[in-house]
Design a protein around this nucleic acid. Structure first.
Lengths: 339, 339
DNA sequence: CTGAAAGCGCTTACAG
DNA sequence: CTGAAAGCGCTTACAG
């Protein structure tokens, strides 16, 4: 077994409690003793034992705060990843406090952060890209509170790490699938939904840059479809696809409208159109099975939620720093037989 | 917090040690007390606390035995998954004893199982498909030793679960990629390497069945290439591809020869051939980046090794049964930008 | 057959 | 400023 706090205490001829204080930078120890103990700890290569720590926290659990958008389309999948991690770590005395954020405003996010900060040992959040949020994160970190961002990142903050998808490369992957299945020929429509999220524009950016570079003969066009298109607008889209036989491919970076677009293409009777979308939401799986959607790129929201908690757990309970600052989740290509 | 062994002891008016004996079916307790305690435990909904158990095992660790082929091409990746799980659980007093198996004979596998069985609390193995191995597994399980199979499965054994890829669907996924990138036309060669592994034939089976069903215009042919083809044989393959312009696609189910075949196609100057292979071994990543291999299906051997240990850990330390008997790892489609 | 005690590694509240 | 003690949940070796 490894070196324990007891080994250090014996060697330094002090009590275990004193060693504990020193290892956690708590006050009430003379500088000499502190220096001596730290010296011995590093000589012996001391690593705290997670299990010992966990057991002693049964009564006074560590709490992790989580903040993410209530209206996020993959809300449930993120949540179930968080739940799975919680189940795994509840025996360690780990408590999770989730706050669903609505409306999606920086001020609201700041309010939620402040409501949690005094009671938690770590924070996982889906940040809104606003300078004030970044500054608040840095403030928490400076106070010694570890913070991770997941699903969406925010630049120049002192967060421990980001857990999510590399959206540019995900878009490129979509582009390559499109280019290859079209044999490098034809007209492709990029149909965007929301425009206020960094992810989505990065996916489109990756997609178009790859097509232009590797499949220069493909002709790109773009179109917008707000969430929840119905009635006349929907019918006009159906007839658009019925008429424009030159359209050979459709790319939908916003998973929130992928099902809708798939249905429209289905109604137009255009099974020949190659369709690449993002995320596995709503009808997407069914549309893949029906052969209307060819490929869906999944960003594994379950994994994102799970790992956000795991990284914080490791940090809090084992002082284990994440290995990389960018913890990219898999860019999963989903089709009929690997759903 | 949950119900503890202490709560049960108090309610049943016995000592904690007695409760422990009963919960573990150990002898030395009267039938009446046993029945009463079990009753109370289930009434209270007792679940053992992993952390308490782990801490008490620091001195007398649980050992998990692992047996897998030394010559397996993804040996290293399996091993590093196992190592990662070990690092995660070493603080729990978990010890892992790996045995690399060579030669790949049932008798050798039985010998290794027997050499481990008396000292372990669980066994993870890549089974050889032979009746005697299945019987031995059942024997261990009947003695109360949990066994999981990974990477390869064996039929009709009492193992806890199988962790690995669904090879048929993986083959179908490969087939769909091939069919779509060829636009459903052309001649495709299936090049097989080894023939003595269940995986490999299932992949081919999935591939050909999908092509026949969904892309009936594609013409399938097969070819064999032993591992390590060099000299005249290699040159004859190069010239084969130089000459046969009708060949539009190549499928390689055996990751062990994927790099080799990719190189041969490259030498033949046939970047136009669509190439779908299995696994990320040897040169495969480079060949993807060079644009010679179009898609590689990965079976995530790291994940397989990791989860084999995790499942056994959960079972041993938390009496948590795996949720499904078949724990399929992802059928990952890998290309340039999601490697 | 049953129970009391000691111990795993760490933390905390308290006594000196 | 420092140390001794009790406790987290479970297991084990031993005493009765």
């Amino acid at each position: 077994m490894g070196v324990t706090i007891n080994d250090i205490a014996k060697k330094a001829k002090v009590s275990r409690g004193t060693v504990d204080k020193i290892l956690h930078n708590r006050p009430g120890v003379s500088d000499e003793v502190r220096a001596a103990v730290l010296q011995i700890a590093s000589e012996l290569g001391y690593k705290p034992n997670v299990v010992g720590k966990a057991l002693s926290h049964q009564k006074k659990p560590h709490k992790i705060g989580v903040i993410f958008p209530a209206k996020s389309v993959f809300f449930e999948q993120l949540q179930s990843g968080i739940d799975a991690a919680h189940r795994e770590y509840e025996d360690y005395g780990l408590v999770i406090e989730c706050r669903a954020m609505a409306p999606l405003l920086p001020s609201e996010q700041l309010r939620l952060i402040d409501s949690l900060r005094s009671e938690i040992s770590g924070l996982a959040l889906v940040p809104i890209n606003h300078a004030a949020v970044g500054e608040r994160i840095d403030e928490l970190v400076d106070e010694g509170l570890p913070v991770v961002t997941f699903n969406n990142d925010i630049k120049s903050s002192k967060r421990l790490c980001f857990i999510g998808q590399d959206a540019i490369n995900a878009g490129k992957t979509a582009g390559e699938l499109m280019g290859k299945t079209l044999g490098g020929q034809g007209r492709v429509i990029v149909i965007s939904g929301r425009v206020d999220m960094l992810h989505l524009s990065q996916r489109t950016e990756g997609f178009t840059s790859l097509i232009k570079e590797e499949f220069p003969d493909i002709e790109l066009e773009s179109m917008r479809a707000p969430h929840g298109v119905e009635g006349p607008l929907r019918r006009s889209m159906v007839s658009y696809f019925e008429k424009n036989k030159a359209v050979k491919g459709v790319f939908v970076p916003d998973g929130g409208i992928a099902g809708l677009i798939g249905r429209i293409i289905g109604e137009a009777g255009r099974k020949d159109i190659k369709v690449v979308v993002f995320d596995l939401l709503g009808d997407t799986k069914d549309l893949i099975m029906e052969g209307i959607i060819d490929f869906a790129i999944d960003q594994n929201p379950f994994e994102q939620g799970y790992r956000a908690i795991k990284v914080l757990f490791d940090y809090i309970y084992a002082k284990r720093e994440p290995e990389q600052e960018y913890q990219y989740t898999d860019i999963s290509v989903k089709m009929k037989y690997n759903l």
